[in-house]
């Protein structure tokens, strides 16, 4: 593995499979009376969150603590970040405190890359979501959840549906799933597909009903209205009718097909409540798997000898 995890594209197939198999071993820890391993004793992991997050921050915190690392949480609200401190000065502070890994979420695409390659910090940088760019650990936990239900992903069909334009989850998933041999189809209205999507290793479609009967996995994305400043679709109701997953559409799925959602869900918009709570939905399991996958990432980045000085 490289020293940082900034993009799902950083992972070769071997790397990705190593993370998934490590996560599979670490998942059994959740069933033990003592949910703790000593691998990262004495290491410090900083959660640097410039954007709000529940799942991801808690998940990284639980993962680091279960590996016995010391965790420092640093969020925009209630720190000098809200007084206008720059990313660079924040990074220099973290470096002075001796962080071994920085888990960063930032509203600007590319902020983790800047942090990793500017020379401000010597620690490993893990991208926990940057703008509309990437969210590699989410893609890893999604792939992990899929392999637990479907086995190998080679040749499996995955439909990623909804607001692809604003979704870092969709981009990371598309890259990682292609690496793992799955066939990804993005389904969205033309206004919500990003420019340059034709260079991604995916197919695209505007017609949800044509795609999902063949899919092994249907992943619904949240419509990110906070990132929208224009009219991407006429009305929420029309969006929901054409691109929402409801009970009627769910009935057209194959028996083994699972339904995923990276959360937070907007029930009634992209996914109806009966689908979200159905047997096919693995949405709660995704959260559980998130801790195991993030443990695997932190262990593989920090558990062994630290490369001295060098980059990647």
């Amino acid at each position: 593995m490289k020293r940082h995890l900034l993009s799902a594209a950083d992972l070769s197939r071997d790397d990705a499979e190593l993370v998934l198999s490590t996560a599979a071993e670490l998942r059994s820890l959740a069933d033990r009376p003592i949910k703790k391993l000593p691998a990262l004793r004495g290491r410090t992991v900083v959660n640097l969150f410039f954007e709000d997050s529940t799942r991801t921050r808690i998940s990284f915190e639980a993962a680091a603590k279960r590996l016995s690392a010391d965790v420092i949480n640093f969020s925009a609200k209630g720190s000098s970040l809200s007084k206008g401190e720059s990313l660079k000065d924040t990074a220099l502070t973290l470096e002075a405190m001796g962080a071994d890994a920085v888990v960063v979420r930032h509203g600007a695409s590319g902020a983790p890359h800047r942090l990793a390659h500017s020379g401000w910090v010597r620690s490993s940088v893990v991208n926990a979501g940057d703008g509309t760019h990437e969210h590699p650990t989410q893609a890893l936990l999604d792939a992990f959840t899929m392999t637990r239900h479907l086995g190998s992903l080679d040749g499996r069909r995955v439909a990623i549906v909804g607001d692809v334009l604003h979704s870092r989850v969709a981009r990371s998933n598309a890259l990682l799933l292609a690496t793992l041999g799955a066939e990804v189809t993005l389904v969205a209205p033309p206004t919500l597909l990003p420019v340059g999507v034709d260079s991604w290793p995916v197919e695209t479609s505007y017609d949800l009903d044509a795609v999902i009967p063949k899919a092994d996995v249907v992943m619904m994305l949240r419509v990110q209205r906070e990132r929208m400043n224009g009219g991407f679709f006429p009305t929420p109701r029309e969006y929901s009718r054409r691109y929402g997953l409801d009970g009627r559409r769910m009935a057209t799925l194959q028996d083994h097909t699972i339904v995923m959602h990276p959360g937070p869900m907007v029930r009634g918009m992209e996914i109806s409540a009966d689908v979200a709570d159905s047997d096919r939905s693995v949405i709660v399991e995704q959260v559980t798997n998130g801790v195991a996958v993030r443990m695997a990432v932190l262990y593989l980045l920090l558990g062994g000898a630290q490369p001295v000085g060098g980059d990647e």
């Binding site: 593995m1 198999s21 071993e25 391993l37 000593p38 262990y299 593989l300 558990g303 062994g304 000898a305």
Partner: peptide, 21 residues
């Protein structure tokens, strides 16, 4: 019983793959 994470030389080599417990 995999003991990889409990080894005293964990920090001396690159991170090793876990074995099955």
């Amino acid at each position: 019983l995999d003991v990889t994470m409990y080894r005293d030389d964990l920090r001396l080599k690159p991170a090793r793959a876990l074995l099955h417990t």
